[in-house]
């Protein structure tokens, strides 16, 4: 699907990146824990989150993410949106909760970002 499809499925509002909505997306991750996003996300994907501090955008920048989806109708500050725009991120907001947003996107074919196998192996003590 494309980001435009995500906007439709989530009945979302586009905050940044109107011109990039035709970008294809295949996977997503959902977390309010940036530590986990940094540790487990290995590809240019979509982050669904309820956290709206500057570190969400910073984390996206380090991982080269494509799109940020804020749930429960959250809208980050202008300053945060400006920095998202600078790095070319698409930012959308939906009234859906994180659980519902994930369910709707999964039903349309989006899948969870794969967690690298070697991490599973290493992680088990």
């Amino acid at each position: 699907m494309t980001i435009q499809d995500m906007v439709r499925v989530l009945n979302a509002r586009v905050l940044i990146g109107e011109e990039k909505l035709d970008m294809p997306v295949y996977t997503a991750c959902c977390s309010d824990l940036m530590s986990d996003v940094l540790a487990f996300v290995d590809e240019k994907t979509v982050l669904i989150t309820g956290l709206t501090n500057p570190h969400v955008v910073r984390t996206s920048e380090m991982l080269d993410l494509k799109c940020l989806v804020f749930v429960r109708g959250k809208v980050p500050s202008e300053e945060i949106l400006d920095s998202a725009e600078e790095q070319g991120l698409v930012v959308i907001t939906t009234k859906a909760t994180a659980f519902t947003a994930c369910g709707l996107l999964y039903a349309e074919g989006l899948r969870g970002v794969p967690v690298p196998l070697e991490w599973d192996m290493e992680g088990k003590k």
């Binding site: 309010d32 824990l33 940036m34 530590s35 986990d36 996003v37 940094l38 540790a39 956290l51 501090n53 570190h55 969400v56 984390t59």
Partner: peptide, 12 residues
């Protein structure tokens, strides 16, 4: 509160 402190930093 900022989304850190999950104990993943050094291992990551």
């Amino acid at each position: 509160s900022l989304g850190f402190g999950a104990g993943m930093g050094l291992p990551n």
